[in-house]
């Protein structure tokens, strides 16, 4: 079985993002970028499946500018076998990304698509679901554990108040939640090896899929600053303030 892992290059989770001066989005110029952390978990799970013998090959794919190559190299340093960069300078919304991924999954004859549940930049949590629908495959979202056996994949899903286990026929789409695994470090020798692994570049137009945007960003603004707290001297004073100032009781 071939596992396809879509990954996204996003502003690094350590970076304090700030809104671009024109309010069109967040500032990405000169900011550290790295692989979406949920995608790292997906890469790790795919590599583990291959190490366990449940998968034969792990292929990572990303949709983005030339610079997005670096997250593909990171994924290969973690153990993915090869990579595909679908090149575009546009920012695509989930529906368009799903169309691209569908084309790649079909071309690659993927048996499983394992991807992050959402990207930490736009928090859409949509691409996996749309992709499953477009492919007509079953989906196991918010996975916290997966087991592959006899042409099926069992996915433990994190839901409110517990875990739901679903059994899906393969091929399927699985989206990774935080607790699925803890991704390994890319070791220095593996980073060196990853530089020699195959990375194919596909121009987005050559896929002939619809990538038009349907959404418009109206504005992006920073949340209002939190006011400094005050110390109260007694419970009575607290109740008083809740009544008169906060007006919540």
């Amino acid at each position: 079985m071939k596992v396809l892992v879509p990954v996204k290059r996003v502003v690094d989770y350590n970076v304090k993002v700030r809104v671009a001066a024109d309010g069109s989005g967040v500032e990405t110029q000169g900011v550290k970028m790295s692989m979406n952390p949920f995608d790292e978990i997906a890469v790790e799970e795919a590599v583990r499946l291959r190490e366990k013998g449940a998968a034969k090959e792990v292929v990572v794919v990303t949709v983005g500018a030339q610079a997005a190559q670096d997250v593909l190299r990171t994924a290969m340093a973690m153990g993915a076998d090869r990579a595909i960069l679908v090149r575009t300078d546009d920012t695509l919304e989930p529906r368009a990304v799903a169309n691209v991924l569908k084309a790649i999954a079909t071309r690659e004859e993927a048996g499983l698509i394992c991807m992050g549940k959402q990207a930490i930049d736009d928090d859409m949590n949509a691409t996996g679901q749309i992709l499953a629908a477009k492919l007509g495959w079953p989906q196991g979202t918010f996975a916290s554990a997966v087991t592959v056996a006899d042409g099926r994949i069992e996915v433990a899903r994190e839901i409110d108040g517990g875990t739901e286990v679903v059994s899906l026929t393969l091929p399927a789409v699985v989206t990774a939640d935080l607790r699925l695994n803890e991704p390994r470090y890319a070791s220095l020798p593996n980073i060196m090896k990853a530089r020699k692994k195959p990375l194919e570049t596909v121009e987005i137009d050559s896929l002939g899929v619809d990538t038009a945007s349907r959404l418009t960003v109206v504005s992006v603004a920073e949340p209002a600053e939190r006011k400094e707290g005050v110390k109260v001297n007694s419970a009575a004073e607290l109740v008083e303030k809740l009544k008169t100032e906060a007006k919540v009781i």
Binding site: E182, P183, R184, Y185, S187, L188, P189
Partner: peptide
Amino acid sequence: PNFTPGMIL
């Protein structure tokens, strides 16, 4: 579990 030893350069 993710221990990765440093290497000699």
